[in-house]
Amino acid sequence: MIRVGVVGMGKMGLSHLSIFRAHPQVELAGICDSNSYLLSVLGKYTGIPTYSSYETMLAKAELDAVVIATPSALHAPMVRTALDRGLHVFCEKPFCLDPAVSEELAALAEAKDLVTAVGYHYRFVGTFAEIKRLLDAGAIGEVTLAQAEAFGPVVLKRQGTTWRSKKQLGGGSLYDYAAHPLNLLNWYLGSPNWVGGTVLQPVFSSETDDQVAGTLRFDSGATGQISVNWSDESERKMSTKITLWGTKGRIHADRQELQVYLREEGPTGYRKGWTVKYTTELTKEVWFYLRGEEYSAQADDFITRIAEHHTDGVNSFTAATATDQTLAMLVADAESPTKPRGGLRRLIGR
């Protein structure tokens, strides 16, 4: 059995607690939160040992691995403490707010041969994983344009009392929503070498952004556009969409449906013209279901990699570091004064 502790009993922490505890190879050995009331209720009703101090949990609970689901600004110090103790770490996204720290921690984990994961669960969604497979097979040729979008109803009025409304704590739609489609772009196209036209804009929030727009250029020659708004009541829940245009076709996907247009015969199952596949066909069964197969699949991937000593993973610290770097580029671009013309021209002429 792998002994797992979970820190941070918010929406994601509770969800992880449920999924990890249901895993047949996991012994849920400790939970930690700063809200003593919530912690006491959970302790009383689940029988899991509770800790109000993270350090105490790491010292006493004899953990093999820890799941970190605290506000984003706390990820870096908590991850470091866990790695120093030789624990495998699953951290919620975004990984670290400072990409230099992300790199350092990814290197530290690698040096210590520890299994790492960041909760970019969209890489475990059947449709989005299928895009990766199709791109690797060259199905749409060279990707020239990518559109990455996320919309949903999170901040619909002027208020907000949690860390998510505080920029310094890693709140806002950039870190919370845009991070997901950007992480998919990183998976499909690599790291951008340039970003421009970034606008991080509030709709209702007073301290942070509720929508994100921006343009990214990739080494491959592809141009990406990110468009995110979490003040969209027309969506029932978060809706993430990816559209890729290539020299040999086009792919569009959300978490339910994959629509592929190919100009010539593609890999097995993909004909010339349109092919539509659904999540029912593309999703692998999971042992326990809560909110979506992808959450269980990412937990299972982490536990299985620990059991089998595989440090390489699709959502490892290294993979997440690329997304932290992309996020930092967007922030820097949004905060910079008018960009120098020369730099832009140089890129265009590249």
Binding site: Y37, V154, V155, G160, T162, R164, S165, R236
Partner: peptide, 29 residues
Amino acid sequence: HKYANAMTEDGPIGAIRRFLPDGGILDAA
């Protein structure tokens, strides 16, 4: 979804408080 979206914004305790007819009971508790 009503609870899930509220939890993203207000945390678990905040979300429950929001849907109680009288949030005071939770504070007292």
